[in-house]
Simulated assay, not measured.
Amino acid sequence: MTIRVNGKVVTPSGVIWQGCVEVKGDRISAVAEYPSARDGHWIVPGFVDIHTHGGGGHTFTTGDAGQARAAAAFHLGHGTTSLLASLVSAPLELMRSATTAFAPLVRDGVLAGIHFEGPYLSAARCGAQNPEFLRDPSAEELTELIKLGDGAVRMVTIAPERAGALEAIELLTRHGVVVAVGHTDATYEQTRAALSAGASVGTHLFNGMRPVHHREPGPVVALLSAPGVVCELVADGVHLHEGTLTFATSTAGPERCALITDAMAAAGMPDGEYELGGQEVTVADGVARLSRDGAIAGSTLTMDAALRSAVTAGVDVPDAVRMASTTPALAVGIADQVGALQVGLRADLVVLDDDLNVVRVMRAGAWVE
């Protein structure tokens, strides 16, 4: 059976204003002009969120497989067809059990991988990470988790100034695990050393990082100026000012900027009291903060909302789509399967109206109910 979806098709090379995406089975079989198309909807690749802790009242941070399935299903309804399950800083026991629980979900395609955001982070820049669990990188721990996951561990965030960080980065990259620099008080030079060791992503750029200073540019400048490094951006109007978002995008380009949600369980849920990594979180007016000190505690963002926010800030639609799909897929090594409307890739697409609201979602050639 062949499915044809007509509209304004956003491809890596630009927009086909009267176009068609043809799907056979679970793959894209053709992307072409279709002059008789009457549907004015945007047709974009499924979103790829490489940093999310949960959503729809469900969390990845406890390592519960049922919660993970439900969180992934929530984000799928908002156009995210591929995502990493991000954990926060935790004891090794929880990291082990989460890896064991999530590895089958990765094999089944429910998740694109596991992201450990910590615990190898800076106490000075820990943000909403639980300081009780922060520690130096351990080659023994990482080796065990890599073996346990058998390909499921996709990314680890590390503060490069911690003892043993460079060795850990080299270990991870040798095993095909992406290393991100984040929650760090590193200097410019320390960050550059991490990049030389193999780190290739900046975890939520600007947030949880030593700020830029004209005599100590710090991690932000090191990451923005490094060819091949992808910088995560949380486009929720809380983590970043619109001017900061557009500055980063114009500096690094959409091919090196990835929109992420950094969402927690409260995404899509009412204001109220929640939990993140063993810490109480209060959500008010859709903004999640630690109850104890008011630190930003992830977000309540979805990827479709992030796309709209980026466009509102001044990023044009094709560039924003690249940042929501193609660039993050490249960042974590899954661009050979997803992230673009190209022949041979998995048939993941999102139909958006002119206000960029989700109309329909297709994953692996099937429309999502």
Score class of each variant (00 low, 15 high):
Cys231Val: 14
Gly277Arg: 03
Asp271Ile: 09
Ala263Lys: 00
Val212Pro: 04
Glu255Ala: 13
Ala288Pro: 08
Ala320Ile: 09
Thr327Glu: 01
Gln279Trp: 07
Ala284Thr: 15
Pro211Ala: 04
His241Thr: 12
Glu232Ser: 11
Pro217Tyr: 06
Pro328Trp: 04
Glu216Thr: 14
Glu216Pro: 12
Val321Gln: 07
Gly277Cys: 01
Arg210Trp: 01
Ser309Leu: 11
Glu273Arg: 15
His214Val: 05
Gln279Glu: 05
Val238Asp: 02
Gln279His: 10
Ala284Ser: 14
Ala306Arg: 11
Thr251Pro: 09
Leu240Thr: 12
Leu224Cys: 03
Tyr274Trp: 11
Met209Leu: 15
Ala310Trp: 04
Thr312Asp: 10
Val287Thr: 05
Asp293Val: 02
Val283Pro: 06
Asp262Leu: 05
Ala297Gln: 04
Ala235Lys: 06
Pro219Gly: 09
Gly218His: 13
Val321Trp: 10
Ser225Gln: 10
Ala284Trp: 03
Asp271Ser: 03
Val238Ser: 11
Glu273Asn: 15
Ala267Met: 03
Arg308Pro: 06
Thr246Gly: 04
Val315Phe: 14
Pro270Thr: 02
Ala252Asn: 02
Pro217Arg: 06
Met264Arg: 02
Asp236Gly: 00
Thr282Val: 14
His204Phe: 11
Val311Ser: 13
Glu242Asn: 13
Ser291Val: 00
Ala258Pro: 06
His204Val: 15
Gly272Pro: 12
Gly228Pro: 02
Thr261Pro: 15
Phe206Ser: 03
Ser291Lys: 13
Glu232Ala: 12
Gly272Glu: 09
Thr261Phe: 12
Val220Phe: 12
Met269Asp: 11
Thr244Ile: 15
Val238Glu: 13
Asp293Phe: 05
Asp262Ala: 08
Met323His: 10
Ala197Thr: 12
Ala305Phe: 13
Gly198Tyr: 04
Arg210Leu: 01
Ala305Asn: 08
Asp285Phe: 14
Val234Gly: 01
Leu223Ala: 02
Val281Gln: 09
Ala263Tyr: 00
Ser299Gln: 09
Tyr274Ile: 04
Arg289Val: 06
Cys231Thr: 01
Ala252Val: 07
Arg289Cys: 01
Val229Pro: 04
Leu276Thr: 06
Gly243Cys: 15
Glu275Trp: 04
Thr282Ser: 03
Glu275Lys: 05
Asn207Asp: 10
Ser299Arg: 03
Ser309Tyr: 14
Thr312Trp: 00
Leu307Ala: 01
Pro318Met: 07
Val234Gln: 04
Gly294Ser: 00
